[in-house]
Amino acid sequence: MVESSWDIAMRRIDAEFDVPQFVASSLVRKIAASEFRLPATDRVKFQRLPDHVIERIEQIVRDAYLEASEDVGREILRERFWQQALTARRDLVADGELISEADFRQRLGLTQRRVGKMLADGRVFSMAVDNVTYYPALLADPALDRKRLQEICRIIAPAPPESRLDFLSAPRGSLGNRSPLQMLGDDVDFKRLRQAAVAWAAEWSRTVVRMYVGEHEEEPTDAEPLYTAAAEADPRSPLWQRASEALHADGNEWPLGPNPDIRKFTLFVARQVAGASMLTPEACVQIIVDGELIQIRIVAAPGTALHSETFAREKRESLVEIAKRVVSNLCKRFSSTMSGGDE
């Protein structure tokens, strides 16, 4: 099967740099859509990457499109990516790597209802080709440890189906140039594979925390945030746990300077999937510092009781330190609460 420019670029970036899939996917999309140069307005979003790395990735993307003999304009980029994905899926069907639902059920001896439950909990996954549902043949391979394979499938469920299939079947440098399918039989290998799968799955979703001065119930569109922090995190993890990870992530926050002494601000939590520019709002917490007290009001948060509470402020706490403590308290209080999409 001929590789598309997207496949070539992503593979080469992964081989040269330790860059999360989320970041690599976003970079390829933005660079390809802007005449193979990362727009200056987007540079701050990738400030953790040195200039020479950005320049090298720009070259990788440009070379990938030349190698694939593709000429892409901004207005047709999205359509071309969609066509590339469809062509790749058709090739998988022709090669027998994707099989029909009837064939899949027959090989595993499963009812339609059982397959539906396995799809829902991520133990198997499907791919649509020309409005027909197909399943990866490797998920029905009798030579593989089915229980362990399905466990890995559940872990990597946040990623798109094509990426999950590639993860399972392609050799990976982090696994000693072996594919995950080759590491299912040995206990030590499987433990290593499981750890790699958890880390890889987290790269496909990012949790973003933003804070604005004043009390708000919706994120302002006419004001710059006081502070922004983000971290790659599994979207199935509890909401407040992910927010805490974002606030404690080193180097993935801005501004990096001293935080202003603000007495009234609002904290917003949102989720962003790889390759998407839009964020999905998840939570809103109003925070008021009144002398030695901190008052919070949860305006919106899936699975979290909307309430207000007050607790003592520690001396000389900055805006970010207050936010970290508020989220930490919510994390402890609602430790079993999952994100809204998984309720």
Rank of each mutant, 00 (worst) to 15 (best):
V23K: 12
E215M: 12
P171K: 06
R271C: 11
A143L: 09
A196C: 08
R105Y: 02
R80L: 15
D91A: 01
S34P: 13
P171W: 01
T207W: 05
D121W: 03
S169K: 00
I60S: 04
T280R: 13
L226W: 07
F22H: 10
A137R: 09
I54Q: 08
P20Y: 12
F265K: 06
G122H: 08
M278S: 13
F190E: 06
Q106K: 12
L110Y: 15
R178C: 02
W6K: 07
L98W: 11
P255H: 05
E343W: 09
H52R: 06
G96P: 07
T228F: 02
K315W: 07
R148G: 04
R114T: 14
R236F: 06
S308I: 00
T266I: 14
C153A: 15
T304Y: 02
K315Y: 06
L38K: 13
T337H: 04
E151M: 14
G109N: 10
P281H: 10
N259C: 14
S336A: 15
P158W: 01
R113V: 14
F104R: 06
V61D: 07
L193G: 11
R48S: 00
W240P: 03
T111P: 03
G185R: 15
A233T: 10
S4D: 07
P171A: 07
L319A: 08
Q106M: 13
A274E: 14
R80T: 11
V72T: 08
R107H: 11
V124P: 10
L119T: 00
E217S: 01
Q59N: 05
L239C: 12
A137T: 13
S100M: 08
R263W: 08
F167Y: 14
L165S: 04
T133N: 09
M10H: 06
L110V: 14
L77N: 05
P302M: 02
V61E: 12
R154F: 07
H52G: 03
S169R: 10
D250R: 15
A276R: 13
W240H: 09
E97I: 08
V132Y: 02
E97P: 01
I31E: 04
K30H: 00
R178L: 13
S318I: 14
L247F: 01
M278I: 14
A202M: 03
A283V: 05
I294K: 12
V208I: 10
F190V: 13
K30D: 07
R164F: 09
K332G: 06
K191R: 15
I156F: 04
Q84F: 04
G303D: 07
A202Q: 08
N259F: 15
E75K: 12
A159F: 11
S163D: 15
E218W: 10
E309K: 13
N252S: 13
V53R: 11
S169Q: 05
S336G: 12
H307W: 11
R29P: 00
E203P: 04
